[in-house]
């Protein structure tokens, strides 16, 4: 017998899971909410970690930040795995057509030699910086507290891996494996890259995961992305006929614009929680920002010549304005 189940109208007993209803009321919940909130265990852990015997498996004391509710860290993009993957797959489609466009029309070959060389020189070592960001965000996911912030950090880690891979493809498209090797040499040994490399390596040993979030996702990305992808690629190289390069880095530009909103929301939430947090965040920013600006000086110099100083000043001013908007005290 064919039953048309669709015609049955039955009244649900409840609209969502209990923990979601206690937070948002018993009404239909979004997939982001159901897939995120209170997912991480909080009580009755069985054993202490052999890698951190003084703490519980998930432990709020792995950062000096203090929160009454760690799920205050909401993601404005409302990314759960499916939403994130679909968004990135769409961006990947665009990136793929951009790469195709440049490749099939051989636009790489049409670039002036100095433009191409500068793109390779400045962008390819950033593969390693993106790889560092991948490592750091994996750490924040591993040692952070509450799925609302640990989850997007894992997505962020993979985004950074993807960026490192796009940069690799750019290297292979505009150059060859030799270009990648040469860029790695520069990352390892060239004097003008050492400040940045040192910053990244020092971030690897930061123990406090929220400090790491500030050092990596707010400060370093907040200065590196505008400098390289906006100023150098979109402004400087495009003026010199390098629009093709901007096509190849479109993913990074869009990604930075998108993730900035998320990063800022986290900083804002942390600072709004308490003056204790706000001061802590401010001190972290201050310490890491001066190091980052210092590290970027020789690279800006190289890319922009005498405009380097004023560009970095502008960058610092814009960054200060961004941070102020997040409620970080002066």
């Amino acid at each position: 017998m064919q039953i048309d189940l669709r015609t049955v109208s039955i009244k649900p007993q409840r609209q969502t899971y209990g923990h979601i209803a206690r937070r948002f009321g018993d009404k239909p919940a979004s997939r982001y909410q159901e897939g995120t909130f209170d997912l991480q265990p909080t009580a009755n852990f069985h054993y202490r970690p052999t890698w951190d015997p003084e703490r519980e498996i998930f432990d709020t004391s792995r950062t000096r930040l203090q929160m009454k509710d760690w799920y205050a860290f909401k993601d404005p993009r409302q990314y759960y795995y499916g939403a994130w993957t679909l968004a990135r797959a769409r961006q990947q489609d665009t990136a793929e057509s951009n790469f195709d466009f440049v490749e099939t029309r051989n636009l790489g070959a049409l670039l002036a030699d100095d433009v191409r060389q500068q793109a390779l020189d400045l962008l390819l070592p950033l593969r390693h910086a993106a790889w560092g960001a991948n490592l750091n965000n994996s750490a924040i996911c591993a040692y952070g507290y509450g799925t609302a912030i640990t989850q997007p950090c894992m997505f962020h880690a993979m985004d950074n891996l993807a960026i490192a891979q796009y940069l690799t493809r750019i290297g292979l498209l505009l150059g060859d494996t030799g270009s990648l090797a040469a860029a790695k040499e520069r990352w390892l040994y060239a004097a003008d890259w050492q400040g940045l490399r040192r910053y990244v390596e020092d971030s690897f040993v930061v123990q406090d995961w929220f400090e790491l979030f500030v050092a990596q996702n707010l400060v370093l990305d907040g200065l590196v992305y505008p400098l390289f992808y906006k100023t150098v690629v979109e402004d400087e190289l495009s003026l010199r006929g390098g629009t093709a390069v901007a096509m190849l880095t479109q993913f990074m530009t869009e990604w930075y614009a998108e993730t900035t909103r998320w990063v800022d929301a986290q900083i804002k939430t942390a600072c709004a929680e308490s003056p204790h947090n706000a001061v802590m965040v401010r001190d972290w920013i201050t310490a890491w920002q001066s190091r980052a600006l210092e590290a970027l000086k020789p690279l800006a110099q190289r890319a922009l010549g005498e405009r380097a100083g004023s560009t970095l000043d502008d960058l610092a001013t814009q960054f200060a304005a961004r941070v102020a908007k997040c409620g970080v005290p002066v």
Partner: peptide
């Protein structure tokens, strides 16, 4: 002994 980064004593 439990292999751990530092002394590991269970309560």
């Amino acid at each position: 002994q439990v292999a751990a980064v530092k002394d590991y004593v269970g309560v």
